[in-house]
Design a protein around this nucleic acid. Structure first.
Length: 472
RNA sequence: GGCGCUAUCGUCUAAGGGUUAGGACGGAGCCCUCUCAAGGCUCAAAUACGGGUUCGAAUCCCGUUAGCGCUACCA
C-alpha cells in the first residue's frame, strides 16, 4: 500500500510552497490508490504556535482535497526517543557533552566542513555513561560511518541518482540536550512507524536525505522512495518569505481574493510540473490522471507577482477559466457564501444559476460577483460616471420611460420579447437601437460594460427591470 | 569556505542529437459586436557565457558565471 505524508511545521501560515508539496503528495497518492497522511511536525516547541496550527488547517481545508490520517509529532515523542535509544545501543550514535554554542557566526567555516568533536566521538562508553548519570547535558549524535563506507547513494524520483561522500556529512544530532528529538530523528522515526513508502518534499531536503538514509539503515528499516520538488521563489530569485513578500506567500490570501480552490490547485501544479502535452487548464480529475514525477522539473519556479499586484496573472486567468467552465450549479456553491459575507441577498436557485450563467464569462474572481456584479443581486448599486453619460444622452431618459411602459403592457417578458419591444421603439422614434440599449444597461446595472442588455433584462426579471427603468 | 542542485521568450513551460525552438499567461493589433468580456486570428519576445564531442548540440561532456539549498541542540 502506497503511503505518503505531508509534514508541515506550525511556525506560520500555510505557505504556498508547502501547499504545492501537499498537492503533489495528494495527487500522487490518489493516482496510485494510496493514503495521504497529515503529520504536524511540531517538535520545535520554541517556535510552534496554536494560531499557526489553526491557520495551516484553514489553508488545507480551503483546498478541499482532504487526507486520510492525521498525527502530531509532539504526541509521538516516546517513539522518537525509543528509536534514538536503539541506534545508540547499537553503537551507531554517541553522546556529545560539548556545551551548545548559540552563536552560529563562530562556526569554523573556511577550512572545510565541521564533522564532529573527536574527544566526544571517541569517548569510552564508561565515561559517557558516568557523565550522563551525573546529569551532565548532552546531544545524541549520529556516528557517521566514514571508515566503513565512502559514499551514500540513492535514486531520487525527480533528481535522479544522488551521491554524497560520507566525509562531507557531519555527525548530526538525533536528540537535543533537552531530550527533544531533532527534525531528522523525529521525521525518520515517524516515517518508519507510519509505513511511509514515498517521501515527497521540497528540494531543500535533498541533501538532508543522505542523513535520513543513514538513520533508516541504523534503525534497520526499509528505505522509502524519495522525490524532491523544486522550490517556489520570488521574482528576484529569493526564497518566498513572510517577512519580505508578505501575504502572497499565504494560501488564505488567494482564498480571500476570490479564488476557486480547484483553480488555485491547478495553478500551483503548473509551477514546477507539466503534463507535457500543452494542457494548462485542468480539472482535479485530469490532474490526478496526468500527475507523475517524470513531469516534475528540477529548477525552481518563480511566482510572478509585484508589490502593486500580488496575484500572478496566470493564476487569475486560470481562475477565470474555471469560473466560466465549471458546472454553474457548482459555481453557485462558491458564490452563495461570498454574497452572504458581503451582506447581499441570495436569490433562489433558478435565478442565481441563470444570473451566473449570464455574467460569469466576464469575471475573474468570486469577489467580482459582489463588486462588479452587485447590481444583479442588490438595488443599492452605484451608477458610474460613464453610465451617467449614457443616461444623459438626448432623449435617453424619456425613451427608457416609454420602454418601461411598453414592457409593462406586454404580456411576455423574455430576452426576445424585450428585444422586439426595444427595437420597435427605436424604429418608431427613428433613433439607433444602441442609444436605448446602452442607456438601459447603464440604468439597469450602473455600468456601461456587461452582458447583452437583453440578457440583463431577463436576468433581473420584469418587476425589478421596469422599476429601475422608471428610476432613470 | 565545503558539499550538493539548477540554468529555454518578462513569467510558467514543451522539445532527451536533425523542428522556421512549440504552447500558455501577460503585451500589441485585427475580426466578431448594443457595451464589456468570452471566442477566433496575427505580431513582438528565449536556449546565461566559453570551450569541447559530433556530419549535426537547447539537448552529451568540461569550465566560467549566476541563483538556490544544506553545512544548527530550525524544520
Amino acid at each position: 500500500m502506497l503511503r505518503v505524508r505531508f509534514a508541515p511545521s506550525p511556525t506560520g501560515f500555510l505557505h504556498i510552497g508547502s501547499a504545492r508539496t501537499f498537492i503533489f503528495n495528494w495527487l500522487y497518492a490518489r493516482r496510485h490508490g494510496g493514503k495521504v497522511i497529515l503529520r504536524i511536525d511540531d517538535t520545535d516547541v520554541e517556535r510552534n504556535t496554536e494560531e499557526s496550527l489553526a491557520s495551516i488547517f484553514e489553508g488545507l481545508n480551503w483546498l478541499e482535497l482532504g487526507w486520510d490520517e492525521q498525527y502530531r509529532q509532539s504526541e509521538r515523542l516516546a517513539l522518537h526517543r525509543q528509536m534514538a535509544e536503539a541506534i545508540f545501543q547499537k553503537g551507531l550514535a554517541y553522546r556529545d557533552f560539548t556545551p551548545a554554542h548559540g552563536d552560529v557566526e563562530e562556526r569554523p567555516y573556511g577550512e572545510g566542513p565541521w564533522l564532529f568533536h573527536p574527544e566526544m566521538r571517541e569517548m569510552s562508553r564508561e565515561e559517557s555513561d558516568r557523565r550522563a548519570a551525573a546529569g551532565e547535558p548532552f546531544v545524541l549524535r549520529f556516528r557517521v560511518p566514514r571508515d566503513s563506507r565512502d559514499k551514500i547513494l540513492f535514486q531520487d524520483l525527480v533528481y535522479g541518482e544522488q551521491c554524497k561522500a560520507t566525509a562531507d556529512i557531519e555527525d548530526f544530532a538525533l536528540l537535543r540536550s533537552n531530550g527533544m528529538p531533532t527534525y531528522h530523528m523525529a521525521s525518520c522515526a515517524d516515517d518508519v512507524d507510519l509505513g511511509i513508502t514515498h517521501v515527497i518534499r521540497g528540494q531543500d531536503h535533498l541533501t538532508n536525505t543522505f542523513k535520513h538514509i543513514l538513520i533508516f539503515e541504523a534503525a534497520g528499516a526499509p528505505l522509502p522512495r524519495f522525490a524532491h520538488l523544486p522550490l517556489l521563489i520570488a521574482p528576484d530569485g529569493s526564497k518566498l518569505s513572510k517577512r519580505r513578500h508578505g501575504a502572497v506567500v499565504s494560501v488564505t490570501t488567494y482564498r480571500d481574493y476570490g479564488f476557486l480552490p480547484q483553480a488555485y490547485v491547478n495553478f500551483l501544479c503548473l509551477l514546477g510540473w507539466s503534463p507535457k502535452d500543452n494542457r494548462e487548464f485542468m480539472t482535479l480529475d485530469e490532474l490526478i490522471a496526468a500527475f507523475s514525477f517524470e513531469g516534475v522539473n528540477r529548477h525552481n519556479a518563480v511566482v510572478n507577482f509585484t508589490a502593486e499586484d500580488p496575484i500572478d496573472p496566470k493564476a487569475l486567468w486560470l481562475n477565470a477559466q474555471h469560473l466560466r467552465t465549471m458546472p454553474v450549479a457548482d459555481l453557485a456553491r462558491y458564490v452563495r457564501p461570498v454574497l452572504q459575507a458581503a451582506g447581499l441577498p441570495v436569490p433562489d436557485d433558478g435565478t442565481l444559476l441563470y444570473t451566473l450563467e449570464v455574467i460569469r464569462t466576464r469575471y475573474q474572481t468570486l469577489q467580482d460577483f459582489v463588486t462588479k456584479g452587485r447590481a444583479y443581486f442588490a438595488d443599492d448599486y452605484q451608477i458610474t460616471p460613464e453610465a451617467r453619460e449614457k443616461l444623459d444622452q438626448p432623449g435617453a431618459r424619456e425613451l427608457l420611460h416609454e420602454l418601461a411602459a411598453r414592457l409593462e403592457a406586454c404580456s411576455e417578458f423574455t430576452e426576445q420579447s424585450v428585444e422586439a419591444q426595444l427595437r420597435g421603439l427605436a424604429a418608431e422614434r427613428g433613433v439607433k437601437a444602441g442609444l436605448i440599449i446602452n442607456a438601459a444597461r447603464a440604468i439597469l446595472t450602473g455600468q456601461t460594460v456587461g452582458p447583452s442588455a437583453f440578457a440583463v433584462f431577463a436576468v433581473l426579471g420584469r418587476e425589478r427591470a421596469i422599476e429601475r427603468l422608471r428610476r432613470a
